[in-house]
Design a protein around this nucleic acid. Sequence first.
DNA 1: CTGTTAGCGCTTTCAG
DNA 2: CTGAAAGCGCTAACAG
Lengths: 375, 375
Amino acid sequence: MTVTLADVAARAGVSAATVSRVLNSNYPVAEATRDRVLRAVAELEYVANGPASALAAATSDLVGILVNDVADPFFGVLASAVQAEMSDGGGPGGEKLAVVCNTGGSPERELTYLTLLHRQRAGAVVLTGGAVEDSAHTAALAARIARLAAAGTQVVLCGRPPLPAAAAGAHAAEAPAANGPRAAGRAAARAVGAGPAPLTVAFDNRGGARALTEHLVGLGHRRIGCVAGPERLTTTRHRLEGHRAALAAHGVEDAPGRTVHGAYDRASGYAAAHELLRRDDRLTAVVAANDTVALGVCAALRERGLRVPEDVSVAGFDDLPFSADAVPALTTVRLPLGHAGALAGRLAMGREPAPPAGVTLLSSELVIRNSTAPL
Amino acid sequence: MTVTLADVAARAGVSAATVSRVLNSNYPVAEATRDRVLRAVAELEYVANGPASALAAATSDLVGILVNDVADPFFGVLASAVQAEMSDGGGPGGEKLAVVCNTGGSPERELTYLTLLHRQRAGAVVLTGGAVEDSAHTAALAARIARLAAAGTQVVLCGRPPLPAAAAGAHAAEAPAANGPRAAGRAAARAVGAGPAPLTVAFDNRGGARALTEHLVGLGHRRIGCVAGPERLTTTRHRLEGHRAALAAHGVEDAPGRTVHGAYDRASGYAAAHELLRRDDRLTAVVAANDTVALGVCAALRERGLRVPEDVSVAGFDDLPFSADAVPALTTVRLPLGHAGALAGRLAMGREPAPPAGVTLLSSELVIRNSTAPL
DNA sequence: CTGTTAGCGCTTTCAG
DNA sequence: CTGAAAGCGCTAACAG
């Protein structure tokens, strides 16, 4: 049978409580006793029973990261940063099990994972990527998040806007002293039913999109196609709004057929470009939902014998690693993904003071390369 | 206060045992009672306490996937497939929490995650990607895996060779943890039950590499540079062996300076190409460690004014989604990533019969595109 | 500093 | 088919 705390205690000739103390190093223990215990642990190859600890302590060392698509570099980079930050417990014994959960962009799976994580009494959860704008889902999500918070789980939204205040729940109270005695936080969470308020790290998608389209307009483009992301996704809407704001600000007419929606993948960009050209083959520029989509657009353009950027300028979004290498190198909007992920991770672990109003807006930066050129 | 099983039981006017039964649907319960319980669950918004269940049932619904780098599409695609397969419990109530853990290629983190997963009493674990060939690490890894197996966890290796038989039995051979003197006894590990034997899903890296280099040789190339992956990684070694086997089979001399090792990323390919050219600027072809590296090689080549494939042919490996889109489209070796991941996931969940000897070797396929051309 | 004593919330025989 | 009772392995007061 597996070896338990009691076995270790017996072997070391101490009580279970003492073993627990040296393992969690959250209480003074004599040096000699400590050594003895540690030796027993090693000899017996003892591996603590996580569920049992979690049950007794009402908290687990599991922390989750939800992403829309693990196979998408955007999330890969983000998740990697969040995880690196969450994993190193920031202290002895702080070994956290940071795990990433793939929702595949499905709202249901998102909720399911949240429930599963709640079930596991995860210590923190970071939700990345755009949120689906559907009132039913938003409400369900807010409810789940409120319950997670009530259970003492710190929730951080990264790359999506904060929860609507109405849905966020009535308790946007004090910032929890995550470093203090665990018992305090736990007691508070139980008594009040409120927990740590959700925090947010958002990107300035609107501003970035606007700057990008203004760059195109400045180059003389007027017939600009737009391959937007999935409909009803906050990210999509924000980027679209920025794009339109730029158009409006410069008096460029935004013909209705100039926007096509699609997934955040290459195939979508490819199909959208063909569709856009079918509607109007005099397009001189295309702004894509993101870099991956932009690559699909370029492929379609090439296929029709159009050169980038000589005949048509193409712009991406995100500035993923491969964008600089594409041929031609992509003009895009750089999002500080690594920085955002690390910040979200730190916030989740209570290792970073919560920003005012709980929201940090990260600015984006226009990166001009070779895929865009004057008309 | 969070609502517990007892609360639900009270509300439904039944015992806790009954509630447990309907929730796990592992025991006959009267239809009416069942409905009553379910209603109470809904009304109270009850969320089971995972740790408590895990403790009582001695098994959890957590399943893990270890990857070297979440930001690398290779692992993204693989993880996505494994996860999809593991998540859908394959039956009612079979909601598994499939999580991916990012080791960053660090052997220590790999071991840490394995311990953490063991601690959580994970039901299954899939280790993806090449393994580091270091006897100490291999032994430690084998020991961890043996213990996981002993605890009833199904371990599946995906994209790496099976554990050496010798190491698979090497219990307690690892060095003791950070502090604490060397442990003498290993009596405990003795009587442990065997548990499910580790299963393996491997790629034919050797065969793929050989086919690729033969393609190049067939095109007339003789001065072929090789940008291999990180040293001491099984994947690297196998691909290199395939490459050399092809060279040898066709009587092509393999000059010693023609191979450079580096990470599986674009920067490495870029640097390696420059280095290779510095050593011998008459190279006519380069085989890269993988597609990402190949892109870096192409970039370096272009920078030196060399055209691909007119001046130098370049080949990748893996056939990741972006490879078909690169300019020029990459000649590469296609690995059935999705298939492998799904298979590994099914094996892990016991939803697929174990292959003979516990090992499945998946064949690769040469994909010839535009980055390679006759001399 | 260390041992004792209660549970944490759920599953699971064992009876009815 | 349903209930009662006995823990699963660990942590956390509360004494010593």
